[in-house]
Computed example of a mutant assay.
Amino acid sequence: MAFMDPSQFFYTVLFALIIGLALAYLALLAWTPPPPHELPSEKQYRTPKDPKTPRPLPSIEDAASLDLSIIVPAYNETKRLPSMLSSTLEHLASFPKRTFEILVVDDHSSDGTAAFVLKHAAERYPKANIRVVQLERNLGKGGAVRHGMLHARGRRLLMVDADDASRFADVELLLGALDALAPVGTEDALGVAIGSRAHLVKTEAVVKRSFLRNFLMYGLHTVLRIAGVGHIRDTQCGFKLFSRAAARALFPRQRLASWIFDVELLLLAKTLRIPVAEVPVNWHEVAGSKLSVVRDSLQMLRDLLVLRANMLLGRWNWNEGGKLKAD
């Protein structure tokens, strides 16, 4: 039996390694999303009071002009948004001195979500400060959240899902936690308060979910610990509150629009040394989720690898001015 010459074996392995690394880098380039950009129509909003007249959106770089912005990413949510709007406005009515806006970002829905919200709000909540933005492309949940955050007016900016799974009244817990990190009167104070369902792991809310869903949940948590956000017990809860300064620091740098965008934000916060408070909140599962357990779990794993690879290779980094470097 003939054996390969040691030097020939070495060069064969080296060549295979180089080819493998080159293919991996090409895959990274293919999977890395381009820098996000906004189309002209996406820089406008409409209101239930005047749904036919688009108005220019403000910028996160402007000074805050109200207390709380509530950003709601919505993709085909005509069935679930009424409950969310009802519980949100019912709670906010208890705080008449708190100024707020609800910014619904329609992520290029096919069920007329934007038109539905405008009509529903005009009929049920004509005095509520509701704005609707319609995206011309389906960006994904992270893209819709990013867009809303970049055009919100609040001193505090809350991301909340359209399904009403989180009890909106728990926003007071997040506000209290954020006030401890970034007092309201300090415009440059950095802080993030995130809702957490980690305390519900042993309860019926989680136990009754399918074996596959729970298996993937625990697998994701293991991967996240390896990725560097193991200090956060629940990265995926769709109930997160940001100080305006933190939103200014985080969302212009966000690159991922898929389900893993929460992890990117938390890694960015860790990198920029923005304090994060994890706050237990009430939560229940709501039918109609757009999440495909297997497909989206695999996409989240892929995007997590893309995120860490781009950060480790310095392709996603920041210069002294704090701007995102070009690839």
Rank of each mutant, 00 (worst) to 15 (best):
residue 320 E to P: 00
residue 39 L to R: 15
residue 247 A to V: 01
residue 285 E to F: 12
residue 79 K to P: 01
residue 281 V to I: 15
residue 16 A to W: 07
residue 324 L to N: 08
residue 46 R to C: 04
residue 121 A to R: 00
residue 218 Y to K: 14
residue 124 R to L: 07
residue 307 L to C: 03
residue 110 S to H: 12
residue 86 S to L: 13
residue 214 N to R: 15
residue 263 V to A: 12
residue 50 D to C: 03
residue 137 R to A: 11
residue 46 R to G: 00
residue 145 V to Y: 08
residue 57 L to F: 08
residue 322 G to Y: 02
residue 17 L to K: 04
residue 269 A to C: 10
residue 249 A to S: 08
residue 261 F to C: 10
residue 90 E to T: 13
residue 141 K to V: 10
residue 153 R to K: 15
residue 202 K to F: 12
residue 245 A to S: 07
residue 93 A to W: 08
residue 286 V to P: 10
residue 260 I to E: 11
residue 67 D to H: 06
residue 130 I to V: 08
residue 234 D to A: 05
residue 117 V to T: 06
residue 159 M to P: 06
residue 86 S to R: 15
residue 243 S to F: 06
residue 99 T to G: 11
residue 174 L to V: 03
residue 314 G to A: 00
residue 272 L to G: 02
residue 196 S to R: 09
residue 262 D to G: 06
residue 65 S to K: 10
residue 186 T to P: 01
residue 273 R to C: 06
residue 89 L to V: 02
residue 36 P to Y: 05
residue 239 F to Q: 02
residue 234 D to N: 13
residue 96 P to G: 00
residue 96 P to D: 01
residue 215 F to E: 11
residue 324 L to Y: 04
residue 291 L to M: 10
residue 222 T to V: 10
residue 308 R to E: 03
residue 315 R to K: 15
residue 85 L to I: 05
residue 22 A to G: 09
residue 5 D to R: 14
residue 142 G to V: 00
residue 108 H to S: 11
residue 132 V to P: 00
residue 308 R to I: 03
residue 287 A to V: 07
residue 231 H to I: 06
residue 23 L to I: 11
residue 17 L to T: 07
residue 185 G to L: 02
residue 249 A to E: 10
residue 227 A to S: 11
residue 131 R to P: 04
residue 275 P to K: 14
residue 66 L to D: 12
residue 195 G to D: 01
residue 233 R to I: 03
residue 313 L to R: 02
residue 112 G to E: 10
residue 248 R to S: 00
residue 104 V to Q: 00
residue 318 W to Y: 09
residue 290 K to R: 12
residue 73 P to G: 09
residue 130 I to A: 03
residue 22 A to I: 10
residue 71 I to V: 15
residue 244 R to H: 01
residue 241 L to Y: 01
residue 139 L to N: 07
residue 22 A to C: 12
residue 301 L to T: 13
residue 35 P to V: 08
residue 96 P to V: 00
residue 267 L to A: 09
residue 125 Y to F: 13
residue 186 T to Y: 05
residue 243 S to T: 05
residue 35 P to G: 08
residue 66 L to Y: 09
residue 80 R to M: 08
residue 26 L to N: 01
residue 135 L to Q: 13
residue 94 S to W: 09
residue 316 W to K: 05
residue 78 T to S: 01
residue 194 I to F: 02
residue 140 G to H: 02
residue 143 G to Q: 02
residue 214 N to E: 15
residue 281 V to M: 07
residue 261 F to T: 07
residue 201 V to W: 13
residue 73 P to I: 06
residue 80 R to S: 12
residue 118 L to R: 14
residue 317 N to D: 08
residue 267 L to N: 10
residue 235 T to H: 11
residue 262 D to H: 15
residue 188 D to W: 08
residue 222 T to N: 14
residue 7 S to T: 15
residue 16 A to S: 14
residue 324 L to Q: 13
residue 168 F to S: 01
residue 102 I to F: 06
residue 318 W to E: 13
residue 45 Y to L: 06
residue 249 A to K: 11
residue 14 L to V: 08
residue 309 A to R: 00
residue 197 R to G: 03
residue 153 R to Y: 01
residue 226 I to Y: 15
residue 123 E to A: 14
